[in-house]
Nucleic acid binder design. Structure first.
Lengths: 219, 219
DNA sequence: GTCTATACGTTGATAGAC
DNA sequence: GTCTATCAACGTATAGAC
């Protein structure tokens, strides 16, 4: 499902040296910051190199070109992304499972806001770099997530809401706290969203969404 | 064609000629498309000029520089944005008012997705161009919106949810359908979101959010 | 493996003919 | 008011010395 990140040199296929690993990490880190703020087109290799503390020729040595670096960053992110998603099953207790899912997504929004923003930018920009990602497998996976909700509905464990739109509600409401953190801070007079703020936000979402779906909260 | 009062040149304050009005409109239209896709930094005057069918020197004639054009586009959007927001009052019936509000926002996401995306890109990019917009007045306005919900809560018309987070839930869940339309289409196998799709999405949100807040639906 | 120097296209912006 | 020609700055990418 995810694009491939070479643990080995993309050029030689040999195991990565310690220096290589360290430099690649520094570059990816710097690239994440820039891509998250300015998107693909708006980011320059120059700026990334400066932020990573390396001459810009090195970026081209480790990643063949700008798109190569971008794909590496995206892959990094999708790996994270995917790993937080596959926990719901029809056998689960809806209240418990949904609570856990929302908490996990909010925790992700708090700890990896950059990842969420890069993803958002890419989607808004047309998402062509993710066309590989949104393939048959992805649609099948999405379907299987939706069918979990359908199973709960059929078993009378929750209201007959549209499972697909419920997923979009879960995604939209949780990612909002990563992508729009700037606006949220400005509006509420904060300088940053604390762990506590995010937990409050999560509790609020859990209350409204569970009750809204006719699920009794877990004890 | 009607005899409207001509808009005025942003430079001279003199009445705008018909040519000027037409060209400015074409430029802003093209600029919106590009800024919505690539953000401020990722957009080039060159591309905008080509899309507007004008030599690029003209853009600098009508709008002093790139930032001037960007601000013009943003202002255009904020005007639209604000005009859809001020309908909730403590005297309203919560069910009716919230239903209307969600429908309005979804209608906005359907008709003006570009506007929503430019706003999203700007916020993700740090939102410095909006620092003027997020001023004292804005915070006061936001507060007054939140206090409407608080009034409903105090009157026992809805559950004691956090009014501020409720607003973020409303914003996040409705804007998601504009900003992430690409992903939604890919995932659901559609080519575009129809009016009918958006109405379904709205109905779903209304069901979950109203019930989740302990509000009985309007009849 | 690393970095300096550089090629060469594109950028935002302007000067000046029409 | 409009547009062609042009500028300096910056973009990605590479060649080749170390």
């Amino acid at each position: 499902m995810s694009l491939e990140v070479p643990a080995h040199s993309s050029r030689t296929g040999k195991p990565a040296s310690r220096i290589r690993q360290k430099n690649e990490q520094a570059i990816i880190q710097a690239a994440e910051d820039e891509f998250a703020r300015h998107g693909y087109k708006g980011t320059s290799m120059n700026t990334i190199a400066a932020k990573a503390g390396l001459p810009k020729a090195n970026l081209h040595y480790y990643f063949t070109n700008k798109m190569g670096l971008y794909i590496a960053v995206l892959s990094n992110i999708l790996e994270l992304w995917d790993s937080t998603f596959n926990t719901l099953t029809p056998e689960d207790d809806p209240a418990e499972a949904l609570t856990r899912y929302i908490r996990t997504k909010m925790e992700f929004s708090r700890r990896q806001p950059q990842a969420s923003r890069i993803f958002a930018m890419e989607i808004i920009s047309g998402g062509e770099c993710l066309s590989e990602y949104f393939n048959q497998d992805y649609r099948a996976w999405f379907s299987s997530r939706a069918s979990v909700f359908q199973a709960w509905i059929d078993a009378g464990k929750m209201d007959p809401v549209d499972p697909v739109h419920l997923i979009f509600l879960l995604w939209g409401s949780t990612q909002h706290y990563a992508d729009f953190a700037t606006q949220i801070c400005r509006v509420t007079g904060r300088t940053k969203l604390t762990k506590h703020d995010m937990e409050d936000a999560g509790s609020n979402l859990i209350h409204i969404i569970l009750k809204g779906c006719g699920i009794k909260p877990a004890l």
